[in-house]
Amino acid sequence: MNDNSDILNEIQLDALGELLNIGMGSAAASLSTMVQQEVLLTVPVIRIIHQNDVPKQLDDVPPQKVCGVKQTFRGNFSGDALLLFSEEKSLSLVRAVLGDSIPLEELGEMEEEAITEIGNIILNACLSSLANIFKEHLDSEIPQYLNEDIEQLFNVDNDDDCFVLLLRMSFSIAKQDITGYVTFIMDLESIAKIRTQINNMLGM
């Protein structure tokens, strides 16, 4: 396995984070209008890791099951963009967004649509940020709702050299702070392209 730091160094990651945070600004604005209250979205941490290591990186105690939204994209580089929450956090988010008083355990799959839309807004923001970097559009599929076993999702047993761009997302809605993760699962080639583009942007 390659050393992760060879793939994107600190500076490159910082630059990528900056760009993504700009994208998040518009997503937050969009969400704020929808739910009629202030929504803050930030990407405090951005890393590149091997996909097998993803479960370990999610929260202190990796949740057994995650739910979220997936959008597969293609273009100059390709992969799956995922917004993930532990099952509980996803429901907290919906509740915060909808201002609902229904107990968590009751929310369940009835909120699939709403989660999908929130995920869609955020993933679109990320994808358009990336598109800005590459000055080239990425074709994306319609968002899909996910509720899966985390091990399965990241194919822990699979030894493919697939890397993940992991963004920790911080949602601040209705006095609640909810952490979620955006992951871009990409092959080495796509990562290399990102690095080239960032270097171009930074004039390196």
Binding site: M34, Q71, V97, I121, I142
Partner: peptide, 24 residues
């Protein structure tokens, strides 16, 4: 805003959007 943004995403960023009844 939401629908117009979504249309904008589609036309300019080729990004699909899903608008739920719950949020809209």
């Amino acid at each position: 805003t939401r629908l117009l943004n979504a249309i904008d995403d589609a036309l300019h960023y080729r990004l699909p959007s899903s608008l739920s009844h719950k949020l809209n």
